[in-house]
Amino acid sequence: MTTETVIKAENLDLTFHTNDGDVHALKDINLDIQKGDFVSFIGPSGCGKTTFLRTIAALETPTAGSVCVNGMPADEARKNRAYGYVFQAAGLYPWRTIRGNIRLPLEIMGFPKKEQEDHISKVLDLVDLRGFGKKFPWQLSGGMQQRASIARALAFNADILLMDEPFGALDEIVRDHLNEQLLKLWDRTNKTIAFVTHSIPEAVYLSTKIVVMSPRPGRISDVIESTLPRERPLDIRDTKEFLDIAHRVREGLRAGHAYDE
């Protein structure tokens, strides 16, 4: 495997200035993400995991330090459309069909008409929504809508996928199913995925690298390289290896909390 660094955060610091005073959201974040990695950010709410992801996407600007994506400053990478971003809610446009929603980034980025349709069909297959292209979002279940939003993020062939608790609002059965599908998708497309979650099993099941974060100020307390194989059936979650990693994540989270009390 190659070990090309696609996302590199160095001495990252971010402070929000609010009316109630400053909030130190990120402090001294150093992290390298290699091409093809599946990285999860896990931590309690307020630990800055979403803020970190948004900083990588250049939706937030760091106060100090730098984030490089594909060797460029994050904002330049954003302008080069280096990543697809999946939000907590699907956020599909109600006035566009599913195909129309997936077409949106392609239209904005100026893909030729013919190519647009090919891309849409391809990603609809990837997320198992073939045959739903002509439906409007409200005709789909929450899980299907979120899959459509993933398809939208995949449509323009960005190598990086940034996902902010994409399955947080879904029930556990749907979530398991989507996790499994996401792993398959990752395996097939060889994308680099950064994934925010607050579920330990989800993080361990999906990731090749787990970044444990703790709050006030948001910082990285542990980085765990997963030893699980790339091929992961759902019942891998009952193996000792899985439980060991989950245990280490839990320890890391607890250590972060103890600091607080």
Partner: peptide, 8 residues
């Protein structure tokens, strides 16, 4: 934000 990620 979504449109911002597309640099629209």
């Amino acid at each position: 934000d979504l449109l911002k990620t597309y640099n629209a």
